[in-house]
Design a binder for these strands. Structure first.
Lengths: 185, 185
DNA sequence: ACATCTCTAGACCAATCGGTCTAGACCGTT
DNA sequence: AACGGTCTAGACCGATTGGTCTAGAGATGT
């Protein structure tokens, strides 16, 4: 197996993920992905035979992995759930700020804006479920009862999703940083 | 002034708003808007000289008016803020269910997915600010202190935004109905 | 009746869309 | 050296995109 295969493949995924986040699925053209990632068209359709849709799912999966890592990192050294949740919000705010373009949720941009079929919705649903379960696991680990853990995780995730949208409109991550005080203050 | 002018214009706005909600700005073609609204192309560019972008702003504005009405209606007969907030969530869940296609937030679909310029972001920001202020007004009316009203309104709006996204992924309005119990339970 | 206005109607256009296809570069294996 | 597989490279394609333009229908004012 050629090492370059992986390189080209991940380069495509990362570039596509970034562009989808910034301009949405339909708002991003194949040509632009190829240009920004300096990849010829043939390579794209070699690695992703189904084309743009394939690429969108790969990009969303990749972004989801990153989110799961951020969640774990945030809760790792936390003394309690609210502590971890606060760190998570701050980490996400920081991530939001690193991008020059005000970006949307990587999952919704790649999957909702994309082809409106059931498969894509299922895919998005699965990713959000993964996130929820990951947070629930952390909540349980930090001492919350099963019911409370589920509620706390869902509330946090709702606020983060909403906060991300608001942050995009306001072009400021302040909303994300305010979440802990809104929920637990 | 011709009566038909208004008819064609609003027909375009409503159709565009629906399609943008379902498939996003870039995902919706002019041709489809014209087909579904049974409007010739010339009429569109007569009423909206700047074309699709103009139409998106008009559609978002129109949808925002609707949202403001729903907010007022929900809080009108409310005994306290939480009561009104609960009614609002249920009303929105009901609205979510009426559409056959699982739709996204009318504002974000028309304005975020759209052209990535500052003007559109400002427009979206203004609409969200309008919503927030409307809820704050209701909170104050129902006895909350200024600081508490602002916090309560922002929290509610974040949860609704996030809940709407989740509802779309899960193709179920249950999340929206769970919000009151998550926030106030 | 005529002129003027608003609005409808759709042919038409260049540009871009996502996707296919062929050619060959570069590899390890034999 | 010759082969077979992986991957790059980009010319090329029909379809669709948003938008322009001309023609005329229809109402109104004089």
């Amino acid at each position: 197996m050629n090492m370059l295969e992986t390189d080209t493949r991940t380069r495509l995924i990362k570039t596509a993920a970034r562009l989808f986040r910034e301009k949405g699925f339909h708002g991003t053209g194949i040509a632009e992905i190829l240009l920004k990632s300096e990849t010829p068209k043939g390579s794209l359709y070699h690695h992703f035979p189904a084309g743009k849709a394939d690429l969108a799912k790969a990009a969303a999966s990749w972004a989801s992995e990153g989110m799961l890592e951020i969640i774990d990192a945030a809760f790792e050294g936390a003394s309690d759930f609210q502590d971890g949740a606060t760190t998570l919000c701050y980490k996400l705010a920081k991530f939001f700020d690193t991008a020059q373009e005000w970006q949307s949720c990587p999952v919704s941009s790649a999957l909702f804006d994309g082809p409106g079929n059931e498969e894509f919705r299922d895919f998005a649903d699965q990713i959000y479920t993964d996130w929820t379960e990951s947070i629930i696991r952390q909540a349980s680990r930090l001492g919350l009862e099963t019911d409370d853990a589920g509620k706390a995780a869902e509330t946090l995730l709702l606020a983060i999703q909403g906060g991300w949208t608001m942050a995009r409109a306001k072009r400021s991550s302040d909303v994300l940083r305010r979440i802990p005080s809104l929920l637990y203050g």
